[in-house]
């Protein structure tokens, strides 16, 4: 398992997509936070640093990584190298959990530092050490779970475009609509509902701990479904 994990992390580090997404996400996030901190009239630091769509990029990255195995027809080689398909999926899921944490740190830490400086310069309330720690763990937890979720959805659907477009529609349209119509259901959904609870944003009807438990349950359930499907699938 360690070797598989090392191999997956090496793939991730040496594929340009990840580096490009990290750089773009960091730049975009920094811009949004600086604008929000500099121009916002009633800027709340906690919301500024957690209500960022950038966190969700990792779910797309995970999905692209897994569906890429079919798109580039590399799944055969991967399974030949690691015939235990469940372990292969687990290694990829864990590597995207690690990637999610790395992405979140790379994006969140500079934005917090710069945002805090701007807020402080305007004489507005800043987070302080306790607030920063709170923002960090929420962002890291969501990213750590959304990465594997993307990998597992990708393993189930396989088609890259369908997976990515489907995830975006789900996160940006369907889940918010369900939340509006039936909040008790919407807050339990995996891409916007439960993560919103963890992040403590506008969707945060669930408190962080149960929201995190819901996210873990979604990730494990989709992992189990993806593992079962991957094991039984003929690679022709």
């Amino acid at each position: 398992m360690t070797a598989l994990l090392r191999a997956e992390l090496l793939k991730l580090r040496t594929t340009r997509t990840f580096a490009a997404v990290v750089a773009s996400a960091a730049a975009l996030s920094l811009t949004l936070v600086v604008l929000g901190a500099a121009l916002g009239k009633e800027t709340k630091a906690h919301a500024l640093f957690t209500n960022s769509a950038i966190t969700y990029i990792i779910v797309i990255l995970g999905a692209i990584a897994m569906t890429g195995e079919w798109r580039h027809r590399t799944i055969t080689g991967s399974v030949l190298a690691a015939p235990n398909r469940v372990r292969l999926l687990a290694a990829k899921a864990i590597s995207y959990s690690v990637a999610g944490i790395a992405l979140s740190i790379i994006v969140t830490v500079p934005t917090i530092i710069v945002g805090e400086l701007v807020l402080s310069g305007r004489g507005l309330a800043t987070l302080g050490a306790g607030g920063i720690a709170d923002v960090l763990w929420r962002n890291l937890a969501v990213a750590a779970l959304l990465g594997p979720l993307g990998v597992c959805v990708g393993a189930l659907v396989r088609n890259q475009i369908v997976t990515v477009v489907g995830l975006v529609i789900m996160a940006a349209a369907i889940e918010p609509a369900v939340f509006q119509a039936v909040p008790e259901v919407g807050r339990l959904l995996p891409l916007a509902g439960a993560p919103g609870g963890v992040l403590g944003g506008t969707h945060g009807d669930l408190s962080p701990a149960p929201a995190l438990a819901v996210m873990v349950a979604w990730t494990l359930t989709i992992f189990a479904a993806a593992a079962w499907r991957l094991r039984s699938r003929d690679l022709v």
Partner: peptide, 10 residues
């Protein structure tokens, strides 16, 4: 295998 494939970016 007949359709040996590799990630094009690596």
């Amino acid at each position: 295998l007949e359709d040996a494939s590799f990630h094009p970016g690596r």
